[in-house]
Structure formats: C-alpha cells, structure tokens
Design a binder for these strands. Structure first.
Lengths: 154, 154
DNA sequence: TCCTAATCGTTCTGATTAGAACTTTTTAAT
DNA sequence: ATTAAAAAGTTCTAATCAGAACGATTAGGA
C-alpha cells in the first residue's frame, strides 16, 4: 500500500494507454497511406504558411534527426515542400503543397471526430482531471531531471 | 471550451509525458549499458524461473517480433538464456543467467528509488487519480476499437 | 574586422516498433 | 489416423527513435 508499490503499475498504465492510443489513431491515418508521425506533420502545417523544422519538431514532439526523414517521405509523396528561408541561411521553411492541403482539409474534420469518439462518454471534468494528472507528472519528471543535472549545485 | 477543443491537448500531454518518462528512466539504465526495453526484460525475468516469450511480451508490452531482437541482444551480452520448453515444442523458456541475476539484484532496488523519486511530492490519492484516469482512457480506447471491429453487428 | 561559440538542419548508427509472412509444432475435428 | 486450424517464434520490411557527429551559417565579443 506504500507509494513505491503502486508507481510501477501507473507507469505501465502510461505506456499501455499511449500504445493503445497510437494504435487506434493509426487506423484512421492508414486510409491515406500515411503514418502517424507523417499525419501529425500534415495537420501541424495545416492552416499555416509553413514553419521551420525546429518549430515543427517542437509542435509534434519529433526529434530533429527523425523529422528530417519524416519530411523527406512526405516530400516524396508530394504533400510537403521545403524552401530555403530568406531570413536565415541555416533555416528551411516547410509547407504543405496543394496536394497536402487537400488531404488536410478533407481528412482533418473526420480525424477530429474519430479521435473525439474516445471521449464520448467523458464528462468534461474527467478530461480536465486526466490532463491535470498528466501535466503534474510531466512537471515532476522535469523537476527530477533538473535536480539530477544540477546535483552538486544547490 | 467544448470537449473537442480540449482533447487534442490531452493527447499531446500523454505523448509528452510518456516521452519524458522514457527519457528519464533511460538515464539510469544506460549506466549498465542497457536500453530501456532490455532492462524491462531483465526486471520482468528477475525473481522468476523464466517464462516464454509470449508471457514476457505480455508483461513488458513488447510485440513478439520486437522481443526476439531484444532477447537476442541480451543473449549476446550473456544476461539471458533461451531453452526449449519441455512441455511444448513450439515454446522457449527465457531466463536470467548468473550475470543477469547479478545485474538485476544489484540494480533493481536503486532503480525503484530512482523512479520513485518522481513521486516524492505526491499524495497517494494523486497517484490513484492518475492511474484511474489512465485506466479510464485505456478502456475508452479499447471500447472504441471494439465498436469499430463489430461495426455492422449491433 | 576577426574569431569563437551557438544554432540549424542533415547524416549516421544502433535499437526499437508494428505488422506481415513464414516454419514448426500442437490441437481439434473428422 | 488424417487433416485443417490455431498457436509460438523467427525473420523480414519500412518507419521511427534518440543521440552523436558533421558542415554551413549566424551571432556576439574582443
């Protein structure tokens, strides 16, 4: 009944729930012959004029090394375009092509409904509680990580 | 303020929190020159007489195709052993070697402390609330998945 | 101006991932 | 006893993943 006996199962639940969600969401996205990270890039670019890989990675939580490959595959499919930034010679601007916009506009509303179906039986407080719990844990992890780094400092 | 405007951020939080946890836990495990899935196998086998890959996969949530590779790498490191099952000619029994047991016994208590540090500031109700929220979502996903499969049935 | 440090994106490596195809073995039905 | 179906593991493919190393560009200080 102590804390240390319960936390391993919480973390297993975290993994399990995350896996289940990815697997559920992937079903919808496969209809467009896209992977989940690829679709994530599409909907993140949707409705924008494009953004740098750095920004895109921050939004999608995809590491920059991985993002290069994901964007390449979307480029090969003609859904996305890379342009050199005018302001910064190091930067690229990634944006949707017409074909990419088309997929985005046709699929996104249905995607939201598909995902939203998960919460059909939820009260809105329940979603809030879930989100609060997750943010709480995220911050606890960030704090523990910082303590580790500055171990000798304070 | 509707449900559909809040759920994307919950799911982003789920991904972000999960990523942060994996990254935090990996730090401890790297000290033994192991990856997280590899260590997960070690601690799942720890204290047992061994188990089949099927059972091991169910415990660790690692898919069987992936598990084969993880176990191979642990075998190469001499931490794990594969034996043919006496009862079932299709089955293998995977168990820790002496070196594997040694790592398990030396590291697991510290691993629990390391992970437990995340929950230092938690009230036990908070852990319960997090777990309940995750289980709730997991079940909602499982239900949605089932509805999808039996779409034409009821 | 010059030079060092930081930033941006790509490339590379080793590992994990899911899913499908495949082999071997077992089970179950005939 | 025979055969079809199911189960267990391995192998294979394409993609993702984190992290490190790298080249090119920019920023900031002497």
């Amino acid at each position: 009944m102590t804390v240390s006996s319960t936390f391993p199962s919480v973390l297993r639940d975290l993994l399990r729930t995350h896996q289940a969600f990815l697997s559920y969401a992937a079903v919808h996205v496969q209809k467009f012959d896209l992977t989940l990270p690829q679709y994530d890039v599409i909907i993140t670019l949707g409705g924008t004029e494009g953004m740098t890989p750095k920004k895109l990675g921050e939004e999608t939580l995809i590491t920059k090394g991985t993002l290069t490959g994901v964007v390449c595959r979307l480029e090969d499919k003609g859904l996305v375009r890379r342009c050199a930034s005018a302001k910064d010679g190091r930067s690229q601007i990634i944006s949707l092509t017409e074909a990419g916009k088309d997929i985005y506009e046709r699929s996104y509303p249905e995607h939201l409904r598909y995902i939203g179906r998960l919460f059909d039986d939820y009260e809105s407080e329940e979603i809030g509680a879930l989100e609060a719990s997750l943010v709480r844990l995220y911050q606890a992890i960030a704090a523990a990580r910082n303590e580790e780094k500055g171990a000798g400092d304070d």
